[in-house]
């Protein structure tokens, strides 16, 4: 059933950033993240430099900013938490727009926000410019243990299958009069997640069985270089 073509995070293109080898992009991403996280939060101008570097890469990738902006909503819970911090934190108070907020709290919130936003945007840029299986190939080239790469590969492959299954379960429940938005029905949703877990677990066993039936002995044959 209607699995979308390509991956939801990937934006098809042929820019310099798209064509860069996946393992370099991964190393760059992790390096950038570590740098951002290690930057003391009161060095405001350094964050400006980080942002300029990142935006340059985004510009080079030719991925429309609106495309990335829409996917930034994943950060929302994080933002809510950051916004709460100045109100909860201890310490000397300052007035911002007539509200007394904690000064160290404000600084902490800024730190969270800026580091989080840079991290999310950088990851989205990688996801938008790199096909999921190239990310896996990159990880393998970076000597990530094969077992982890295999597990991630299966996750990618079956994400759509499991999502579709959840969709069918929810359609079946709604057809029987359930309103998924009503909190009264949340216990039912929780139970359906439980049953989805069991189903996925059993599917995992069947997939393994089908692999064993074709001579699988724990190592995936290395992917032939695409011709």
């Amino acid at each position: 059933m209607g699995a979308g073509h390509g991956h939801r995070l990937h934006y098809h293109g042929h820019s310099v950033v798209h064509r860069a080898p996946a393992h370099l992009k991964l190393v760059a991403l992790v390096g950038f993240m570590l740098l951002v996280v290690a930057t003391p939060r009161q060095w405001f101008w350094v964050f400006a430099v980080h942002a300029v570097v990142l935006l340059t890469v985004v510009g080079l990738s030719r991925v429309p900013p609106a495309y990335l902006a829409k996917r930034m909503v994943v950060e929302t819970p994080f933002v809510l938490f950051a916004v709460l911090v100045p109100f909860i934190a201890e310490g000397p108070r300052v007035d911002v727009l007539g509200l007394a907020v904690s000064e160290p709290g404000l600084l902490a919130a800024w730190g969270l926000l800026v580091k989080g936003t840079l991290g999310v945007l950088a990851s989205l840029t990688l996801a938008a410019t790199t096909e999921p299986h190239d990310v896996l190939a990159g990880l393998r080239r970076l000597r990530m243990p094969d077992l982890f790469v295999q597990i991630m590969g299966f996750m990618l492959r079956y994400l759509d299958v499991v999502t579709a299954e959840l969709g069918r379960m929810s359609t079946a429940m709604r057809s029987r009069g359930l309103d998924p938005r009503s909190p009264r029905h949340w216990p039912v949703l929780a139970r359906s997640l439980g049953s989805l877990f069991i189903r996925s677990y059993e599917r995992g066993e069947r997939v393994h069985l089908a692999m064993v039936a074709r001579g699988y002995d724990g190592t995936l044959p290395t992917r032939e270089q695409p011709s």
Binding site: H133, L156, R157, V161, R206, A210, M211, R214, P221
Partner: peptide, 20 residues
């Protein structure tokens, strides 16, 4: 869906013989 787990059809068909 239990049998086909690879990124491409080619990889999936190659899986068995490659194991051999």
């Amino acid at each position: 869906d239990d049998q086909l787990f690879s990124a491409t059809v080619r990889d999936d068909v190659a899986f068995g013989p490659a194991n051999l």
